[in-house]
Design a protein around this nucleic acid. Structure first.
Lengths: 279, 279
DNA sequence: ACCACAAGATTGGATATCAATCAATAAATT
DNA sequence: AATTTATTGATTGATATCCAATCTTGTGGT
């Protein structure tokens, strides 16, 4: 463990990308200091790290809040993410060896299996992870860190908006990108990456008021104390009461459609309103 | 001014990219606290910001040092920079209006004029700035910040290596990139961006031992107190003794060659060993 | 010359304290 | 009564001091 402030920053980051701490939520120093049982200074250092990461914003003499990006900024984040992943795609199409392609295919297959098993939670995590694995294969740690930060910020965005998109097409995109890239059809792959992210952004509606808030104490409770038990990450275990306190954890219905173009205006078929899993 | 720690982080960043604080230099908390006349905690917060930015590295119970990237990391930084600028180039080729192209051309022209006047210092700064302006035209603040961070890190790298490259060809690249992009020859422009950065990295030799060190107190003296007077930035004033204490500030001789290919192996014509200006 | 141990220095953090600012209430005025 | 003003309280930014853990150094003994 490097420093305590780093650990706290990690926990806060976790809570934010888990949507337990929602945008606009006040992150009071004294409150967090009590929760984590550290001094205010350590909390402040953690908040500085979060702010540098774009997940929090600090207003002078007013304190820190979970970042609440504007629609403009949301678009910019997705544009940046698209740019990075397209660039990585171009590099991979040149340099990636058979083992790399195999890893990507393996990952897609795992996700497909999870979907087939109806394990939505795992499928979601794998869907997120695909992008991380994709960039990792570039073997560029600097790029990885930039990309990971962008992914964190998109994850934050998702607790600010009500997503409404075709889940299955997004899932297939991963497989198709790998196919196109391995066949050397770089241009098409890059276009698909663009479409992939646009199809996520398109469903964003940002004027929605934020969900029932949790106080930081409630939100952070699962991460404190023992060994982070009860924190649901990529464990597919289905505890009756998982993360969210609200009961809209509607069973996701995944309908597998034949690939069809997704024109910017037509969005009227097989959409599921869901939270926390557009990848 | 937001917070004091941010101001100090900015000053340290400045000193690092000015090559006054060289890689490996110890950044003691107590020492910096005295220099800036603040408490150690504020210094620590500034160092955390620097570390997040990749300009410093903090080792537990050992303190902070100016980052000393490995050759591997240097390559990764340049790869990332290339990726970002290529992506921005692709966006600009679609979306940039006449005013944007004009601004780029104006900037190139200013740099050309500076070279013609023999004002190397100004030419250097403008060369650096070109990349910043280029990315700014994408109108994506998120991307701008990522790019700016990468540029800072490349600037840091330059105090770690001895560059040895053809200065004039690098200068012309900017103009050629603009030409190619405006003509819609995106592929060639992206290749040129790649070549541009590679031609910088190629000259890097990282085993060189670091220059005569300054203590942080000496290095930071010009930034402290008054209004940063005496800090040489884009002022073309030619003080006899500029930044560096070592006397190798040889007069740069800029020979304008007809464009020629720069094969990875052939580097035997019109190269000037200089410091701090490959852009 | 080499290893072990003690002394010193530095970092990471805790606590207490203070000034400045913001928020919200209570009071005063129109 | 409504609005404006003043007071109070809470929170942040920052300092000083203190303490424990760890790293470095230097000395001494073998």
């Amino acid at each position: 463990m490097s420093s305590r402030s780093q650990a706290i920053a990690d926990t806060l980051t976790r809570a934010i990308i888990d949507h337990r701490l929602v945008p606009g939520c006040k992150l009071g120093e004294r409150e967090l200091a009590e929760i984590f049982d550290v001094s205010r200074i350590v909390v402040r250092q953690a908040l500085i790290r979060l702010a540098d990461d774009g997940l929090a914003q600090i207003e002078r003499n007013r304190g820190a809040f979970v970042a609440k990006p504007s629609m403009q900024e949301a678009m910019e984040i997705y544009d940046a993410l698209t740019l990075v992943e397209q660039g990585v795609a171009a590099q991979l199409s040149d340099r990636l060896g058979p083992a790399g392609w195999a890893e990507l295919r393996h990952h897609v297959e795992r996700q497909r299996q999870a979907v087939a098993d109806g394990n939505d939670a795992l499928a979601d995590v794998l869907g997120q992870e695909f992008h991380i694995v994709f960039v990792r294969l570039s073997r560029n740690k600097v790029m990885q860190e930039i990309h990971a930060q962008l992914v964190r910020r998109t994850t934050l965005l998702r607790s600010l908006i009500s997503a409404d998109f075709d889940y299955c097409n997004l899932l297939d995109d991963h497989s198709r990108v790998v196919d196109l890239l391995e066949k050397g059809r770089l241009k098409q792959a890059m276009d698909l990456i663009d479409t992939h992210h646009r199809s996520v952004v398109r469903g964003y509606i940002m004027d929605r008021e934020v969900f029932p808030e949790m106080t930081p104490a409630e939100a952070l409770a699962p991460y404190i104390g023992g060994k982070m038990d009860g924190v649901p990450t990529l464990v597919p275990s289905r505890k009756p009461e998982k993360i969210s306190g609200n009961g809209d954890g509607a069973a996701h219905v995944h309908v597998h459609l034949p690939k069809q173009d997704r024109a910017p205006t037509s969005r009227a078929s097989t959409k599921k309103t869901n939270r926390g899993l557009p990848t």
